[in-house]
Design a protein around this nucleic acid. Structure first.
Lengths: 223, 223
DNA sequence: CCCGTATGAATGAAGG
DNA sequence: CCTTCATTCATACGGG
């Protein structure tokens, strides 16, 4: 149910929307507004993350494979959600009782060309650098394509599609000296006309951070 | 391998770190960043949880048996870091000093989780007024426990009952819904002094509402 | 076989 | 919004 609403474009319901949703949901059990609220928050965030990851994975793969070139690439299947012209949204469905107006909350999709910028947000603001973080991602990332903004990336899956074999045993610990960060992916914008990824960013990484600014070039090191 | 990193102090790897780790691990099989991420999350959590129980058990023992005795040591096996006598917080320092790239990401020893003000403490009153600015109401509104009324207009439900049942599944994902209790507290892989402490109190417990009324040893959640 | 433990995954909830 | 936590679910595994 919440999902359907979400699909309809609701991302950050307003107080009243929350209320209505909540009351509808009460039919099924105890629930409070905050639950709904949280749900949307989390869902949105996770969804975003997921796709972020995917994009990233996608581009990685992309680079890898055809590393070079052709302009063509059809954006991945855009499995679901948010694919809508920025302007008209699925909302439709007017004939309905309850006014729960769903407005299109602006599903944005971005292709690998990452053009879209952030929300109307004037970038730097809040006095705080808006370079968002660069770290720690939460869970929920599963392969699936789509895109949004990709500032920093975290996981990548390499598996290329298909099976994510459940994780393996996470292995035998190796004594590895590890530590040395040997690589770090930094990416630079892909020069190619589309697909750029502005990842990089980071910079902040707060404490910790692996020095080593220079690392990188794992497979992707795109140019 | 992950373990070693963990031991090195990594608890919540940054995106980059995850990336690196992941790629290293890829050598052994299919693995994605999220797996690494999950691993750390889980590991940390479980570690923490384990420790908590140990402390708890320890103090129980302490109280029960006697009161004054000397601080018997042999704190539980303390499988790895973090072992600290529950009593004196070993932690002298507490600033975030992790930097230095590679290793110590936080030498800190975690206490039972609550050290400073961690979560878990719902505290009764959250007098956060709720007002939503322009857009939404952002969280900050928690239904005040008592003092119903005062609905500010955001959440709160109007249903009368509201027995807090914690959130329900928010859509039937799977049937459950029942409360299941499992208390396996048994810890001690070590097998030594088995002193189980059936923690829990679950069932209804949950955070919030410290109605301690009948007190009894409700273990302190100390720290 | 069933049971209990270990662990990956997912998600609700807060704090900031 | 972003992070981090706590909990819970679902399994895989190893013994009795």
């Amino acid at each position: 149910m919440l999902e359907s609403l979400y699909k309809q474009g609701i991302r950050t319901p307003s107080a009243d929307q929350i209320q209505q949703i909540t009351s509808r949901l009460k039919a099924y059990g105890t629930i409070e507004g905050k639950n709904v609220f949280y749900w949307f928050q989390n869902h949105k965030a996770r969804q975003r993350q997921k796709q972020k990851q995917e994009n990233l994975a996608y581009i990685n793969r992309y680079i890898h494979h055809h590393h070079r070139a052709q302009p063509v690439f059809h954006p991945p299947p855009c499995t679901n959600v948010v694919c809508a012209g920025p302007y008209f949204v699925p909302q439709a469905d007017h004939h309905h009782h309850h006014h729960l107006g769903f407005y299109p909350q602006c599903p944005k999709v971005l292709l690998p060309s990452g053009s879209i910028k952030r929300r109307g947000r004037p970038i730097g603001k809040t006095g705080k650098a808006l370079f968002y973080n660069g770290n720690a991602y939460d869970h929920t990332m599963v392969p699936s394509p789509d895109t949004e903004n990709l500032n920093n990336g975290a996981f990548n899956n390499g598996g290329g599609a298909t099976n994510h074999q459940e994780t393996l045993p996470l292995f035998p610990l190796h004594p590895t000296g590890v530590s040395e960060e040997t690589l770090m992916a930094s990416s630079s914008p892909t020069g190619s006309t589309s697909c750029e990824t502005t990842i990089s960013a980071r910079g902040v990484d707060n404490h910790e951070s692996n020095n080593e600014g220079s690392g990188e070039h794992r497979f992707i090191d795109f140019f």
